[in-house]
Amino acid sequence: MARDTRRRDEVAQAATDYVLEHGLVGLSLRPMAAELGTSDRMLLYHFASKDDLVAAVLRVSNDRSVAEVRAMPPSPDVRTAVLDLWAAVTSPRLARCQRMYVEAAALGLFGREPYVSVVGEANEVWTGAVVDHLVASGAPRARARRAVALLDATLMGFQLDLPLDADDPVLEQAVLDLADAVAAIACQV
């Protein structure tokens, strides 16, 4: 049984790489299996259903994002932490994970499983990592959760606009304004 679990984890990692490259929308098992050097039947051997595979892929992608945030050294202050987080989520490595999250969240808005459940789980884990980063960077824990609510929602909005406004100086200034706002919320006396 341990070998099956290890193989399932290996397949989940490879499937995540595939979905990060190709996206969730319109995901088909046959092309994925072909690229992974297996068959769609073998994918379903390791996962009870396509939804089970998708849930595993979403969890792996979120785990990768959270690991990146948790690996970040503390920033010198909360304002810098926001700028550091923006740089991280827009880095090539995390930008793909963030894009997958957006696709899953959009599908979850329609009430589709496994998206609703997995996105909810992902939000809790992600928020915890970002709260911990802000606290390590000087935010009082009592205010960090509130600051992260604003930070996360705004960063997500910026990421949705980014493909349209990548070089827009207004977006650059908005990120700086967000850093100021989060620092003000987190560090109020």
Rank of each mutant, 00 (worst) to 15 (best):
residue 100 M to T: 12
residue 100 M to R: 15
residue 101 Y to W: 15
residue 101 Y to F: 14
residue 102 V to A: 14
residue 102 V to G: 12
residue 103 E to A: 09
residue 103 E to R: 08
residue 103 E to T: 05
residue 103 E to C: 08
residue 104 A to E: 07
residue 104 A to S: 09
residue 104 A to P: 07
residue 105 A to T: 04
residue 107 L to M: 15
residue 107 L to P: 12
residue 107 L to C: 08
residue 108 G to P: 01
residue 108 G to A: 08
residue 109 L to H: 10
residue 110 F to W: 10
residue 113 E to Y: 00
residue 113 E to W: 07
residue 114 P to Y: 05
residue 116 V to C: 03
residue 117 S to F: 01
residue 117 S to C: 04
residue 118 V to H: 03
residue 118 V to K: 02
residue 118 V to W: 02
residue 121 E to L: 03
residue 121 E to F: 00
residue 122 A to C: 10
residue 122 A to Y: 07
residue 122 A to E: 03
residue 124 E to P: 03
residue 124 E to T: 15
residue 125 V to G: 08
residue 126 W to E: 15
residue 129 A to W: 03
residue 130 V to E: 06
residue 131 V to S: 09
residue 131 V to H: 04
residue 131 V to M: 05
residue 133 H to V: 00
residue 134 L to G: 03
residue 135 V to G: 09
residue 135 V to D: 06
residue 136 A to K: 08
residue 136 A to H: 08
residue 137 S to R: 03
residue 140 P to E: 06
residue 141 R to D: 07
residue 142 A to Q: 08
residue 142 A to R: 13
residue 142 A to S: 11
residue 142 A to L: 10
residue 143 R to P: 04
residue 143 R to I: 01
residue 144 A to I: 02
residue 145 R to F: 05
residue 145 R to P: 02
residue 145 R to C: 00
residue 145 R to A: 14
residue 146 R to S: 11
residue 148 V to W: 07
residue 148 V to K: 00
residue 149 A to D: 15
residue 149 A to T: 15
residue 150 L to A: 11
residue 151 L to K: 07
residue 151 L to Q: 08
residue 151 L to H: 05
residue 153 A to H: 12
residue 153 A to M: 11
residue 154 T to V: 12
residue 155 L to K: 10
residue 156 M to G: 11
residue 156 M to N: 12
residue 156 M to P: 00
residue 157 G to D: 11
residue 158 F to T: 05
residue 159 Q to W: 08
residue 159 Q to H: 13
residue 159 Q to I: 04
residue 159 Q to V: 06
residue 160 L to V: 13
residue 161 D to W: 06
residue 161 D to L: 15
residue 161 D to E: 14
residue 162 L to E: 15
residue 162 L to S: 08
residue 163 P to T: 06
residue 164 L to M: 14
residue 164 L to K: 01
residue 165 D to I: 14
residue 166 A to Q: 11
residue 167 D to R: 13
residue 167 D to K: 06
residue 168 D to A: 05
residue 169 P to Y: 12
residue 169 P to L: 06
residue 170 V to K: 09
residue 171 L to H: 07
residue 171 L to Y: 04
residue 171 L to M: 13
residue 172 E to N: 02
residue 173 Q to Y: 01
residue 175 V to P: 06
residue 176 L to V: 10
